[in-house]
Design a protein around this nucleic acid. Structure first.
Lengths: 149, 149
DNA sequence: GAGAATAAGTTAGATGTCTAACCAATGTCA
DNA sequence: TGACATTGGTTAGACATCTAACTTATTCTC
């Protein structure tokens, strides 16, 4: 066996997503998925964003973002309006209702980090991040790997 | 910043999935997704499996497995038949067509590992796996973490 | 052995996600 | 300035995935 790391990564990703979804549900956001969280996270940070910016930030396609923002709008958390500067752009903003979620979000974010790094020394954490960065680079820059075909 | 590791894990997971899907497509399996790969992987290993076993192995629900196996069956790669021992169980087996994919699969699996561990010394790899295991455990066993609420 | 509980699968319906095709507005350039 | 390309966004259609409800077999229990 040796492809353990990929399996572990996959399982951590799923476990973290599930944990986040559960925390969001506990905060009153039933049926909200991590991608919705990414949308809100950007809006907490910068007050308004275009669909395009949101899609890039959440690493989702534009059609997906149309769906995600549509749901958040139906939930009353964000509002869409046309940009006065560029008639193609939709400006997305938090509603007052959405703004209320900020503290819950920050709590989840903090607790997520706490849980992920629990039991790791700062040195361990640094080494882990370095190794993961290298692994990611290996997938994103298609460098030929040496293994028998 | 500190929740880097989760972000890295998430991006590695997505990049690896995309890489696998591309390799499967290159092997002639257009539209085959990693979960389908898990189904085939178990069948390469043990010749036959029930829907229940496949779902557990691929970490998907039973309804999802119904869909996945349905697609593989339509593609002519597997065959479903009722178990003679337990009339509730469906036995899934590879067809001759499916069996032909074994070498391509093994190659992908090997190259996946090579790519993931490229640039990591054996000691690094061991430390990485240990840290990831700890992180996974932190999500799966809900241990209270210490962070300000 | 009959009735209840459990287990294996499927169906139904919802939703996030993608690609492909499209529309509309803006930018470019000869 | 006017044709063409580019860009922002949505629509359409497909699909993996989930939960809830259901069906049919098996097992358990009295």
């Amino acid at each position: 066996m040796q492809r353990n790391a990929i399996m572990l990564v996959s399982r951590i990703h799923e476990a973290a997503d599930k944990w986040i979804a559960a925390e969001l549900a506990a905060a009153g956001l039933k049926g909200v998925v991590p991608s919705h969280g990414d949308v809100l996270a950007l809006l907490f940070r910068q007050k308004e964003a275009t669909m395009h910016e949101l899609a890039a930030f959440a690493r989702r396609t534009k059609p997906t973002m149309t769906v995600l923002v549509g749901k958040l709008e139906r939930m009353g958390l964000v509002r869409r309006s046309q940009s006065p500067l560029d008639a193609r752009c939709q400006i997305v903003r938090l509603t007052a209702e959405g703004e209320k979620l900020r503290p819950a979000f920050e709590s989840i974010s903090r607790r997520l980090a706490g849980r992920a790094y629990a039991g790791l020394s700062p040195a361990d954490a640094r080494r882990l991040e370095a190794a993961l960065s290298k692994m990611l680079a290996g997938f994103e820059n298609p460098k030929p790997e040496r293994t028998q075909p």
